[in-house]
Design a protein around this nucleic acid. Structure first.
Lengths: 339, 339
DNA sequence: TACGCCGACTGAAACATTTCAACAACTACC
DNA sequence: GGTAGTTGTTGAAATGTTTCAGTCGGCGTA
């Protein structure tokens, strides 16, 4: 209650007339201490306003009660939803969560990892800039559990992701079923595995349906933002009518929203003139002026599963690395409705 | 490189053939140690893969190198933008950042605060559920710097906010200038200071222009989400035409986006049939199908300023509490364009 | 009465770091 | 050649918690 210095176990012990060890027992094995004593100690703690010092606990324990999530793009709500799933799982395990943001830059990612190593976090969840980065392997080799989120890695650590190839397939299949025979794929950069695989799925199902490859138009973007989507929309609009796709599949919802905005802003109707499918199914997809058809990832579930894996690796000596793959689901909305 | 146990200063000292103190000096006052020794120590650190143990540092120092931000609503991008501003400032000060989410619930807020107390964070930034909560005052009285973000508090701690009353004024003034004489205000609950003050500003300017109070229609919502906005839109549409507002000012952009979606989805044109103004100017406001006019808050700047205040309180003994107030700015876009 | 046992509590060690007074080895100066 | 000053290094103390081997007194049993 007073400012001074924070009271320690020692102060509590003195105030309650017991030893250090007893105070510690009250906190950690209350059943081992006599009721009268326990109550005395508890009152002393309340009177002094005692708050456990987590650093001291950690030092003694050798590891902190903290997880960390390093996300790829803080401006994409998708990652915040994943983070929320992680947080819920962390909370159940009475762990705190550091949320970091690499913003797609390897240097920032490395800086964060370095700091997390110093913090001796129990485990690191990460959507990496590059899942093959040497630094990440180094972290894992140090004995810190690492789980890669939203990317599949065949070795080294656990991972949790959605089947992006399949996601690409169902998106484009939906468009084909709706009668489209010229479709654009908007997304980039292709250094991002997510982009590569979603495109791959699109191409596979395109070929499976015997459609000519040149009618699946690749519209590369610099990144996966709304602005990039708008810009891709302009390029799309600039194509000669005979070659212009009647539908677009976007590598994520931000790009799709940009495309949608550009289309509507320039007087085209969605879905009549241009059907649009996004990916991720963030909340804003459903909230768009023309609600967006999207490939839903179980966002919170991804986070939850990742947290469980990292905890298993941290606590279970028999842990074996696991690649959890979820199956995405097409959520059809107005942006691809057949007119 | 090997798994084993993490090497400590002691191991480095042994490997380099110096004492503990010297290793510590290499890290903390490199200028005090001879070049040859320093290089020897540095090589030993690299060879062993030494990583400082932050808990031990913290224990010794008595305080951690960490800030925390407890946000009100993780599903609103506004708060993530604020958080990003905080993170940038924290990074400059070589501090880590805990990001927590109370989700509008006092119990979760309290749980997070308790945990942060245990972590001995250097300072807490918070957009509180209730700025007058006793618990928050208790934290501050413990000597931990607290800065309230996005709410003005006249006493107890520093705060950083935008002038919400003024924001309400310019929003509605803009609508009046555009010729609207019946306007709705959508938002709630009115336990939120933000909502109360934005509405107050709206009413003030409405009265200043000699318009009858009953023509400023209050559409209360349960919360500030897209779904609430949609629902408010339905109520709006249900009003008899003679009394139906031709414009709506929403307490935040999420509500505005919901309203926009409902309007367009039910065939009304924006802004011709209904003009809409939001608040916050999140990225999705500009990205909406009809780009949204909004009252811009300097989101990152709020975070930055708050971080600077908390750091000042933490380090400067002559610190005095300060209420930083930014002036919001109207960003006019298509959703209120005069037709 | 002697013995062992049990429950409740104690005291010290250990965790990894930082800091600081003390010390050693030089250099420079008279 | 002694003294003062400088530079570089050492060793121990201190931080707050947890754990664990002990201690102590009381109780039941033989």
């Amino acid at each position: 209650m007073v400012v001074g210095k924070a009271p320690s176990v020692k102060d509590v012990a003195a105030a309650a007339g017991v030893s250090l060890g007893t105070v510690s027992n009250v906190m950690n094995r209350p059943e081992m201490v006599a009721t009268a004593t326990r109550e005395r100690v508890e009152r002393a703690m309340a009177d002094l306003g005692f708050v456990r010092n987590e650093s001291a606990r950690q030092l003694r324990a050798g590891t902190s009660r903290t997880l960390a999530y390093v996300m790829l793009d803080g401006s994409n709500p998708f990652f915040h939803d994943v983070a929320q799933g992680i947080e819920l799982a962390a909370e159940d395990a009475e762990l705190s969560l550091f949320i970091c943001n690499s913003n797609g830059r390897a240097s920032r990612e490395e800086m964060h990892l370095d700091r997390l190593l110093q913090q001796r976090v129990q485990g690191i969840l990460i959507t990496p800039v590059d899942p093959d980065s040497a630094f990440l392997g180094e972290v894992s080799r140090r004995g810190i559990p690492v789980v890669v989120v939203d990317r599949v890695r065949d070795s080294g650590f656990c991972s949790v992701a959605v089947d992006d190839v399949y996601g690409g397939r169902i998106a484009v299949e939906h468009l084909i079923e709706n009668g489209h025979t010229r479709v654009a794929f908007a997304g980039g950069p292709d250094t991002l595995g997510q982009v590569r695989e979603r495109l791959q799925g699109a191409r596979e199902v395109w070929a499976d349906n015997g459609l000519p490859p040149e009618d699946l138009v690749f519209l590369p973007t610099d990144a996966l933002t709304v602005a990039d989507g708008r810009e891709a929309g302009e390029r799309l609009a600039g194509l000669p009518v005979r070659r212009r796709p009647t539908a677009a599949f976007c590598a994520n919802d931000l790009v799709a929203l940009g495309l949608l905005q550009q289309a509507i802003g320039s007087g085209r109707r969605v879905p009549e003139d241009l059907a649009i499918v996004g990916f991720d199914d963030i909340e804003f997809a459903a909230a768009a002026a023309v609600p967006l058809t999207s490939v839903r990832q179980p966002r919170q579930e991804l986070g939850r599963a990742a947290a469980h894996l990292v905890l298993d690796e941290a606590t279970n000596p028999a842990h074996v690395h696991e690649q959890a793959i979820f199956t995405p689901e097409l959520i059809a909305r107005a942006s691809t409705a057949v007119h």
